[in-house]
Design a protein around this nucleic acid. Sequence first.
DNA 1: CACGCTCAATCAAGTGATTGATGGAGGGCG
DNA 2: CGCCCTCCATCAATCACTTGATTGAGCGTG
Lengths: 232, 232
Amino acid sequence: MQHPPKDKPSSPTADRRREIAAAARSLIAERGFEGLRTRDIAARVGINVATLHYHVPTKETLIGLVAQSLRDDFIAQHESRPRDTLSPRERLISEFDDFRENLTDNAELFKVMAELQERARRDPVVSDVIRPMQAFWFAQVAEVLARGRDDGSFRHDLDPEAGALLVLGAMIASQRHPNASMALFDGVCAELLRSLENPSPPDAGRGPAARQAPAPKPSFGKSPLKNSTKVP
Amino acid sequence: MQHPPKDKPSSPTADRRREIAAAARSLIAERGFEGLRTRDIAARVGINVATLHYHVPTKETLIGLVAQSLRDDFIAQHESRPRDTLSPRERLISEFDDFRENLTDNAELFKVMAELQERARRDPVVSDVIRPMQAFWFAQVAEVLARGRDDGSFRHDLDPEAGALLVLGAMIASQRHPNASMALFDGVCAELLRSLENPSPPDAGRGPAARQAPAPKPSFGKSPLKNSTKVP
DNA sequence: CACGCTCAATCAAGTGATTGATGGAGGGCG
DNA sequence: CGCCCTCCATCAATCACTTGATTGAGCGTG
């Protein structure tokens, strides 16, 4: 987006802006935009309100800054994943694992994301930052589904875009559920796999008997994937 | 919930409160809670701010009132549907149609619902009203899926609760999508049906040939259902 | 009917508190 | 000195909510 040799500006001002964005993020996660006050952000950073306004001229730009920091985190995380070496099914499971990982040690991210999602309805600054991120995520899943359909591991009549909405919608819904838990999320992932997989795979010899047992629970931890197919 | 002979209290005060709740709802849909001002609500009703505070003592109770009015609408609508005469598959499609119907001529409802969903995180007053409503919806879908699994129309290994999260999550996600449209929603519904239906039904003679065509588009308008099974 | 009283409903005009934002005066450091 | 950076003090605007007064409909009593 900016100058290429600017991987980490690390100037003191840029650091302050990152601190401010981080403080704003945690406060948004706690109280939402409705209760977001510049004074509170400044207090959490440990600076004066005027100092905050020196670094970030207005509240609106501050919110834009939060949206950008969230997008940067999201994209950096998704680009650091191994992609081309995995089969479609493995990549889908990897998507589940990514989500689960964020769910545990990055819970704040989802709350802020939900809050930004609502705000994107009215704020074009937020919308311009958030929407491409969602579109990127959506397209990535849709592409995985399309490849899996074409190679026979997913259903032949699978609509990749609709399927991507199933996957993302179900993952997010499992987290918004009142009784949200990791077991619920795992159950949803297993159900997604059963819903998308080809019931009669052309090459694999799993046979139709596997579809009789209710909820087989494939137990896809990250471990059984990391060393299954490394590189040809 | 209240006295049985109180279907429509229709006292002038209760009417005013309903007017206020309606105005607040539309304003929340437009600007969210962040931009909700008691002055604006009063102006939309056509009364003074003091008069509004005469009817609704505080802003918090006003928001609770909005939540209640939303829940009442939701439950009234869901209880007015024919339930016991339909097969599980028909009831699922009826759920799609309900959602689609609200999507077109009740769009405000979903915006307010999303807004309340976020607020329920921190406001116990809203939470106590919204959560049971969602639980009711969720349980209703899960029960339909369980019945459909048991009678063979849905997959044998279908997990009803996880499946309900698939259905609700996908429907909601299709509406939050940046390029949301009715065609997208219909595609998601079709994909949900393909995902949940039994690929080898025991009694029906549809045959496996129907599963080869990509995206068959069953075209489930409301019309083919409304007069198929009326009442014995 | 007429008079006096009550009370729900409404309003104009505030009240104090809070908010985002500013201006100018320092402070530390090269 | 000059340049970032920080803070104190303050502003104008806005907020939810209150105050005190007015209206008019109902209602009993003589």
